[in-house]
């Protein structure tokens, strides 16, 4: 099992700031994710959450530090790290079924398959994943015939087909409405109960982070760094009622507070107060 630990060690990432200089986006970020663990990452917009995930995916290169999955150093994308993106990335020319089975067209995955029964096992798995995502009657539909929530479920099934060691999810439900998102939360929990997978899940929704994560990592911005790691005390079996639990609400409040404090959003709140006051004055004027 220890060969599946995800090690992020003192990672540093800089981008050109567009004025000839450099902007540090991630500064000395270290994190260790155990096999089967569900880690959620939250933080203010622009603090480097996506960048961190893209580094683990191998889609970006760090200027410093190292990322290791087991004993292998991550330096390029690979099927051992599946990813679900915030925006819809299904291939529009493939049906739901074909999208989910896309990795069966790739040499990297097919070389690992030795027998005919292994292959048919994967095909069965594709059908099972589609069913688990509640899409069995949409198998032959094209992505543009699906709602946003359905598209993300297909993307999750597609990423899981070849059993990646780590699943990276970058605000996968960010574009969904609140109700669909709630449904997706329970679907995700159910899915990973059936099939334990190491997950790194980025979100800016504190409730989502606390509801899904075994641990919640709070990133602070400018430069992006780890502010703190919070263990969620409730077990893996979670249901919607938990979201109303006083203990849960308290933790949510604490996490929100951390984000607010690290991101200097106090200033924003002052601005909002000023604007509300202004709005009230204008209403008063209109009434007169």
């Amino acid at each position: 099992m220890s060969d599946q630990i995800l090690h992020i060690e003192s990672v540093e990432k800089r981008y050109p700031d567009g004025r000839g200089g450099q902007q540090t986006v991630l500064d000395n970020v270290s994190l260790r994710v155990e096999p089967g663990e569900f880690v959620t990452v939250i933080g203010a917009s622009g603090c480097g959450k996506s960048t961190l995930l893209r580094l683990v995916a191998g889609l970006e290169h760090a200027q410093g530090g190292v990322i290791r999955l087991g004993d292998r150093v991550v330096d390029q994308p690979g099927a051992d790290r599946g990813m679900v993106f915030q925006h819809y990335t299904l291939f529009p020319w493939l049906t739901v079924k074909q999208n989910v089975m896309f990795s069966l067209e790739l040499g990297a995955n097919m070389r690992a398959i030795e027998t005919e029964s292994e292959l048919s096992g994967l095909v069965d798995r594709a059908y099972a994943l589609i069913e688990m995502m509640g899409l069995e009657d949409r198998r032959d539909h094209y992505p543009n015939q699906l709602s946003g929530g359905m598209q993300q479920r297909v993307a999750i099934a597609r990423a899981l087909l070849s059993r990646p060691r780590v699943l990276l999810m970058d605000e996968p439900f960010g574009a969904l409405d609140a109700q669909t998102r709630e449904v997706m939360h329970d679907l995700i929990l159910q899915l990973f109960a059936v099939e334990p997978t190491t997950v790194m899940f980025v979100t800016h929704d504190v409730e989502e982070a606390a509801y899904l994560g075994d641990r919640v990592v709070v990133l602070a911005p400018h430069p992006g760094r780890i502010d703190g790691i919070h263990h969620m005390a409730w077990g893996r079996e979670r249901e919607p009622a938990l979201k109303l639990d006083p203990e849960f609400t308290k933790v949510k409040g604490q996490l929100t507070e951390r984000i607010r404090e690290t991101s200097g959003m106090e200033a924003d709140h002052k601005l909002i107060e000023r604007m509300t006051a202004l709005g009230r004055r204008m209403q008063g004027n209109a009434a007169r």
Binding site: A57, P77, A79, F85, H87, T89, S103, G107, N109
Partner: peptide, 18 residues
Amino acid sequence: VPGSWLEASYTLGATRGE
């Protein structure tokens, strides 16, 4: 062709040629 399609394929294990 959106770069995100390419990235999605890479994370599924696609080589450059694929």
